[in-house]
């Protein structure tokens, strides 16, 4: 799923700035397709971000998070070259992962 996610982690002072873009339709279950049929809900429910083994952010999402979700946050610590990894799970049980090294 490497192409399904972009992760960037940059050291800024004593914190690390993390930016994550995940490719996902985030269907609300309310949208109708061209044939007028309702498209089933399909959205990410959980995202976990780890710095090494340590969880630094855990997200719970509903269908109101925009398509191709993007989020930015910071955590204390982190050193250049450390790994930051992101995993997600959606309401259909599908999942994805991505990671990067702190620059």
């Amino acid at each position: 799923m490497a192409k399904g996610m972009r992760v960037r982690a940059r050291k800024k002072g004593d914190a690390t700035d993390v930016r994550v873009l995940i490719r996902h339709d985030m269907e609300t279950g309310r949208r109708k397709n061209e044939d007028g049929e309702v498209v089933a809900a399909h959205y990410i429910q959980n995202v976990t971000v780890r710095h090494g083994e340590r969880v630094v952010l855990f997200a719970q999402w509903g269908p109101a998070v925009s398509k191709n979700p993007y989020f930015v946050f910071k955590f204390r610590g982190g050193a250049s070259g450390d790994r930051v990894a992101v995993t997600w799970v959606d309401n259909k049980g599908q999942s994805g992962t991505g990671d990067t090294l702190i620059t």
Binding site: L57, A59, W61, G62, A64, F75, R76
Partner: peptide, 21 residues
């Protein structure tokens, strides 16, 4: 109405940016 909950473990910073519908 609920779009997202971000749980921030100890050591985290009180700042998040995201996009919602």
């Amino acid at each position: 109405p609920l779009a997202a909950i971000y749980d921030i473990p100890p050591g985290g910073l009180p700042e998040i940016r995201t996009r919602v519908k």
